[in-house]
Computed example of a mutant assay.
Amino acid sequence: MTIEVPPPRASVDLVTVRDQGRIRLVTLDDAESRNALSRRMLQSVVDALGTATRDDVPAVVLSGARGTFASGADLRELDGATPGSYLAQRRAELWDQIAEFPNLIVAAVQGYALGGGCELALTCDAIVAGDRTMFGQPEVRIGAVPGAGGSQRWPRAAGRFHAAPLVLGGVRIDAREALQMGVVDRVVPERRVVAAAVDLANELLDGVSLNAQRKAKQLLRLSEEATLSDGLVSERQEFASLIDTPDLHEGIAAVLEKRPAHFPITKSGAS
């Protein structure tokens, strides 16, 4: 099966899409709002990820145009809203679709990742940050709380006491601090962020079974929600589900024959 890809510079509303080898680059691109996460922007991200799934693209690098990852929520959508009108936007469903993206997704974060921008990065599988990047959850400074996972993902990623200044005080941290907390995987010069994220995505794809990687991603996500005992049950079930699959046979043969394993590069088996 041949993978169909969009033109070199395609557009999904507020997001631009292009391919670099086996990696799809999805770039938030709304100059007017500095990539604020309006409902329209979230829908654009969901649509772009949907095309990646349909096209059998094994990994996505998510970044922001013009040196800013995402400046946070679009405050214009909050001003004058009521609890009912806000919930009617069904934004949570869009966030869930991003978090449930089945393939590898690496955030390439430059400039500011604040509020929803920070939460968007935390939904990814790995984060590469520029050396001048700032992370923060400033919601309490406008009379709100994180609304897309910040209060839940920060403690899981960094620990409750590291998370408290960000969530309770709206404190910002730089990329080096985030790296020390274990939230960021790599810090590189700003100009190299996207390239470094592509490198990391390729490293995570090299030599692995994509079918196994997708199941492993599901298990990692489950570890944030399930008890240890329930998570171990799921892990055993997923392990058993891979017994007697072509990928496992190939992986075992490669080890015994002392050679690299040759797995399909898409879930459909196309090379």
Rank of each mutant, 00 (worst) to 15 (best):
E257V: 01
E93R: 11
C118S: 12
C124P: 10
D247T: 04
H249N: 07
E190R: 02
H262I: 12
V183N: 01
A121S: 12
P264W: 06
H262C: 12
L222E: 04
L87V: 06
L114E: 05
P264R: 01
W154N: 05
D30A: 14
I265M: 04
E100Q: 13
V15Q: 00
G251V: 05
K267S: 14
A212H: 09
P146H: 07
A254D: 06
G147M: 10
E77D: 11
A175N: 08
A195P: 01
S85C: 04
G84R: 11
Y112I: 08
V61M: 10
L49P: 02
D185W: 00
V57Y: 02
N103I: 00
V187K: 04
P102F: 08
L120G: 11
L37P: 03
R176P: 02
S209K: 07
P146T: 09
D55P: 01
D47T: 13
D19I: 03
P8I: 02
P58I: 09
P155R: 11
D131R: 12
F239P: 01
A92I: 11
G150N: 00
G50W: 02
A92N: 03
D19M: 13
T133Y: 11
Q97P: 05
R54M: 11
T68Q: 11
R172D: 01
G115S: 15
Q110N: 13
V12Y: 09
V193M: 04
R22K: 12
L210C: 07
A216H: 03
A178N: 00
E190W: 02
P83M: 07
L219I: 14
A92Q: 11
N202R: 15
S241E: 07
D247F: 03
L242E: 13
A121Y: 06
G111M: 04
D13L: 07
R191F: 06
A158H: 03
A10K: 05
R192N: 12
G111Y: 10
P7Y: 06
L168P: 00
A10P: 02
N211H: 13
L228K: 12
V187W: 07
I265T: 14
F135N: 03
M181E: 05
A240Y: 02
I23S: 01
S11T: 14
A70L: 00
L28S: 03
F101P: 08
G143A: 07
V46G: 05
A196F: 01
C124Y: 02
A212M: 10
W95E: 10
E238P: 00
A195L: 08
L87R: 13
A163N: 08
R91N: 07
A107Y: 01
G111I: 04
A197G: 10
F135A: 05
V145S: 12
D230M: 07
D96Q: 15
R236A: 15
A73W: 08
L62R: 03
G150D: 05
H162N: 14
E225Q: 15
L205V: 08
